[in-house]
Nucleic acid binder design. Structure first.
Lengths: 267, 267
DNA sequence: CCCCTGCTGTGTGCGTCGTACGCAGAGCTG
DNA sequence: CAGCTCTGCGTACGACGCACACAGCAGGGG
């Protein structure tokens, strides 16, 4: 509707995000800023890392910077904008892809991509609490997407399928990290750390599960598989292998028939 | 540490959740309660459905019930407890499984399970905003788990693998719904509804993506696959088919070798 | 029968949050 | 030097979750 101010890049993005892309030169008129976007974002990330996303309040961040609460709003127009910038900073640039072998190198590349993403998420679990508000528009997020797409370059999938595959793998990684983060937070919230919570849960389920109404769950409880859940890394690895197997089936079906047949469109 | 009050079921669960299981009889001494857990939860769910989880505040729910804010705390000891009960109510009982055909009926059953879950999530997108604090302990959640496990009864997978598969499929469904919900919320937050937002995003990306640094993404943008993304249902169906294909590969590898070989434990 | 006890609803108050608004002052441009 | 713009900041407002204390109802023991 209204035109952005002079230095706008015309992207329709918030000013601070355009700044992250390197567009939008600093104004030269007024006094020099005592803070900077980078310092604010770093401080916010530090707070989030030590106290979770819930600990990030404008006042808290400002205090860590020795500034007043409202001064932050000179750099960021709303808290959600700060969130996006935090995400961008914590995500960082994606690691370089391995040597692009032609053939089935895509699986290795995609697995590495997923693992790298998982490492980032696990280092910064608070990221997953931020609602996604659309496709990625910050530089690092776009770079990650680019990496994922490059991994699929030689698969023979069409553009839409590639997007769907990226979405699928990214979603799997996000969900795993989110789940583990939630669980860790719930454990940390109680005083008693670690395995005792899991033991308590199995005891609770033992008391609640009715062998008649819940036969399979009963058998599961008896098997003890819930008491000794697999390591988080193994759980992730298991899921990733399944997902990649599923993708591989698609890739092979595409490469077998050079003229791409429409697969069944009904679920 | 301290013993629960008289009517406790000894599960270690909050009182309101024990009430959901039918344990814990009402006390008989005082005046009759003017509210009920069910009425409170229903009101909260109604608020969440119309204004999102963020709109659910104790004051808001109480106002809808014509009661005061603090009266709710007679029924629920904290807001998180209300969240759990809302989840329980919105989830509802799982639909019955189809006729259990021996053989590869598991795939159909698991797909139906996933679709049913997706329908619930899409009807109540606010559910996904509630952090999971551990394994499910409310009656309906447990019933859903039971259904999922029953679908895998004849797959020959061991207990741990079944849990992992359930986690994988559930995670996929959750993530898809979460993503679609976030997107819908972001679109609704802007005034302009629907496709214009997507068009704006592609325009933004067109301006930001550098063909040299982002070759694959550039090609994707040129292909127009982002401008006309597939229907949400198709996107879900695509991902689900991949996931099920991956699980099917595992099931077949298990059924081929009757003596269960350990698959590679390293990712 | 009455009072006592355990339950009910609720008003007040505290601390925290995001942020709208407006002011005092800094520093470049004329 | 004047004036404009941009800076940081103090104040204020309306939410929020919930601790706490109080007033009144109902059944049970004397």
């Amino acid at each position: 509707m209204t035109e952005e101010r002079g230095s706008s890049g015309g992207t329709g993005l918030p000013a601070s995000i355009e700044a992250a892309w390197g567009l939008r030169a600093r104004p030269v008129k007024g006094p020099k800023p005592g803070l900077s976007l980078a310092r604010i974002v770093d401080a916010a990330v530090a707070v989030a890392a030590s106290e979770g996303l819930g600990g990030v309040s404008m006042g808290r961040v400002a205090k860590d910077l020795g500034a007043s609460t409202m001064s932050l709003y000179r750099y960021v127009s709303a808290k959600d904008e700060l969130y996006v910038l935090m995400q961008e900073a914590a995500m960082g640039p994606p690691p370089p892809l391995p040597a692009p072998e032609r053939g089935s190198g895509w699986r290795e590349a995609l697995a590495r991509w997923a693992c790298a993403q998982r490492r980032v998420f696990h280092r910064n679990l608070w990221m997953l609490r931020i609602p996604v508000s659309g496709p990625p528009v910050s530089p690092n997020s776009v770079a990650w997407w680019e990496q994922g797409l490059q991994a699929l370059d030689d698969t023979g999938l069409d553009a839409g399928e590639k997007v769907s595959v990226i979405l699928l793998v990214n979603g799997f990684v996000r969900n795993e990290a989110l789940l583990m983060g939630d669980l860790a937070a719930a454990v940390a919230a109680r005083g008693v750390p670690a395995q005792e919570v899991a033991a308590g849960h199995t005891r609770t389920l033992d008391r609640l599960v009715d062998p008649v109404r819940h036969p399979s769950l009963s058998r599961l409880l008896e098997s003890g598989a819930l008491g000794a859940p697999r390591e988080p890394d193994d759980e992730f690895g298991f899921g990733l292998e399944r997902v990649l197997d599923g993708i591989e089936a698609l890739v092979q079906s595409r490469s077998r028939s050079h003229s791409p047949l429409r697969s069944r469109s009904r679920a």
